[in-house]
Design a binder for these strands. Structure first.
Lengths: 349, 349
DNA sequence: AACGTCTATTGTAACGTTGCAAACCATGTT
DNA sequence: AACATGGTTTGCAACGTTACAATAGACGTT
């Protein structure tokens, strides 16, 4: 196996080559290191001609700036920390959302660091750690709560962050959110269209702000259309599947069972479908189930369900934009993005 | 809103406090910076008494080492780079696997950086970038191929990496893999037990090494048990759902259709179930579908399917162990881990 | 010709850490 | 008393970058 063949193309001087530094480039160009540093940073103080010449020399020598040195000097890490809750988001959330963030951060030199969020009280510890050790320039987290302790901590310490979802704080902060109020309104309208008269919203945990939005939007919509609404309080987004199964069994044991369900995610839709199936109810016949489609996985649910798209790729891109804005000190008003559901409810796949 | 209340508990001197450095601690303790550095690194050259004293002072002042400075000085980043393919792994793979890696890396100070892998040819660019900019101490990637270009590149440049899955290279390298040969053998045995006589293995793309293992194990098992085997070559793991649907329709249009399926992941199982359902075949009746269970999501498939556990949390922990071993220069023989399927096939959930 | 006023470049000093060679200082040995 | 010995500690010099103050040169003005 020839070991050197790959090198010649992209790494001119082979493996043992010492990484050139600013000093190397400066010596080669016959200028001071400062000049090289400025030239490569497109500082206007450097003449166009020298900038170009230095740029060429740097390319030829294969110079790449040393991130550790930059970080030590400037204090900026060029890292975004994304906190994800292993139990929830990793599953369907991550794919498109992360992809979108990569798109949005492409070319900026920012890397994405992932840490595990937890629902337990020690989740602040992870954030403190990031701050104490300066592990990132900004933090993103999800499942934002009305009175989120993470957001409060970061606001108090003036550490850049962007939430996925909103809080109820008076102090405004950057966020990217999906308009769940609009979503649930559209969903209920669609169910009314389909002739349903009793809607159940599955698991809109009121701890989370988006749960409040769902509740609010649902109440508005049912009032407007004169249909009945059930929001089971015995379960929420963090419930175990058997608790949900029990809730649905109870609901359909009585006389006034719902004839339709709105689910906020693929997983809860899948669980709901399974439970309904287990008690002998078929989606599209005795009941209708609607959901957000955030990943193509819901295309394969049987019976098929109608979904509306939450574009997580766009969410990720927006997140990146807002993050960069926050880091560079843009005003908060420009850093609050509310995304709308895309397209009408329809059979996915 | 009182902004200072939280500070007093965990950050003694409030927000504006300058981060203490080695110098600060050294001055306070009346020793040289080097001594402090060594004391905190548990260097045996420092006397136990001074080490203890310095440790206490460092704690009192809230000293935390500056990562950027350490990185600049030592050249080590304390970052592991995990490359994930957005289309595949993010979905069901990530949750437990990442969780396991966190467990395994806990207390080591290592952070996990995630970059997007792609199936396109430019995927080496991401790796080159990590190497050129020294963005990580080691790289992990998945969907390892028999003649993987990423593994080849990293071997050639002697950059630490661990693959999820094996390669066919002569040069040994660290890996963590699931024994897919054992998995498929167990699966076929189980199907024979259930009275099936024609097994179809869905999508074992032969490009990937694990696809080869699946094929090999399946051929062995069908020969041993005298059953028929079908491996459709028209589709693979990267096929679109409609291609898979078409393949299954074709298969069941003819006379000698399979009476059982083995799927290698949740998503392919879900797609297979959906397609079979669409052509009027019910799992558990006309056909049986078996799969690996790597996340609880498969518990909610209806009709239920029998699964066997691939413990991705253990995989992640093993990955962390192997990574740390590779970084600290352990011999390759100790860095190759093959994990077995857990428990018998049974109804999940 | 002396003076200010730009613009382009330079030198020096950090940022906070660790590796290395040297120095210190008790003890025990000759 | 001079001298090795070994365990502790020290000072210095980097690592590669950027911020800051200072300088050199070109040019027009008085």
């Amino acid at each position: 196996m020839s070991r050197k063949t790959l090198d010649t193309r992209d790494e001119s001087a082979g493996d043992a080559m010492v990484r050139p530094t600013l000093r190397t480039v400066a010596a080669e160009a016959g200028v001071a290191v400062t000049t090289v540093s400025r030239a490569l940073a497109d500082d206007p103080r450097i003449a166009e001609s020298t900038r170009k010449r230095i740029g060429e020399i740097a390319d030829r020598l294969g110079y790449v700036p040393n991130r550790a040195a930059q970080r030590l000097r400037t204090g900026r890490t060029k890292v975004i920390n994304l906190m994800l809750n292993p139990r929830h988001e990793f599953l369907s959330f991550t794919s498109e959302f992360l992809g979108g963030m990569y798109e949005g951060l492409a070319g900026t030199g920012y890397a994405i660091n992932i840490t595990a969020d937890s629902l337990r009280e020690d989740r602040l510890e992870a954030i403190r750690n990031i701050r104490r050790h300066s592990l990132a320039d900004a933090i993103v987290f999800t499942r934002t709560e009305c009175f989120d302790d993470r957001a409060r901590y970061l606001l108090e310490h003036d550490f850049p962050f962007v939430t996925h979802g909103r809080t109820d704080f008076m102090t405004p902060h950057p966020f990217v959110d999906f308009d769940n109020e609009a979503f649930v309104r559209l969903a209920i309208e669609r169910l009314v269209e389909k002739g349903r008269s009793h809607v159940c919203i599955v698991m809109p945990n009121e701890k989370y702000t988006f749960g409040q939005h769902l509740r609010f939007g649902a109440r508005q919509a049912v009032t407007k259309h004169g249909v009945r609404l059930t929001i089971p309080e015995s379960v929420d987004l963090d419930s175990e599947p058997d608790e949900i199964a029990e809730m649905l069994r109870d609901l359909h044991a009585g006389a006034n069972a719902p004839d339709s369900y709105v689910c906020v995610g693929e997983v809860s839709a899948l669980i709901t479908l399974a439970c309904l199936n287990d008690i002998g109810l078929t989606q599209g016949q005795e009941v209708d189930v609607l959901a957000k489609r955030a990943s193509p996985i819901s295309n394969h649910f049987r019976p098929r369900i109608e979904t509306i798209d939450e574009n997580l790729r766009a969410t990720g891109r927006a997140m990146a934009k807002v993050l960069l804005g926050r880091i560079s000190g843009a005003p908060v008003e420009d850093l609050q993005i509310l995304l709308q559901p895309e397209g009408p409810f329809s059979i996915s796949g």
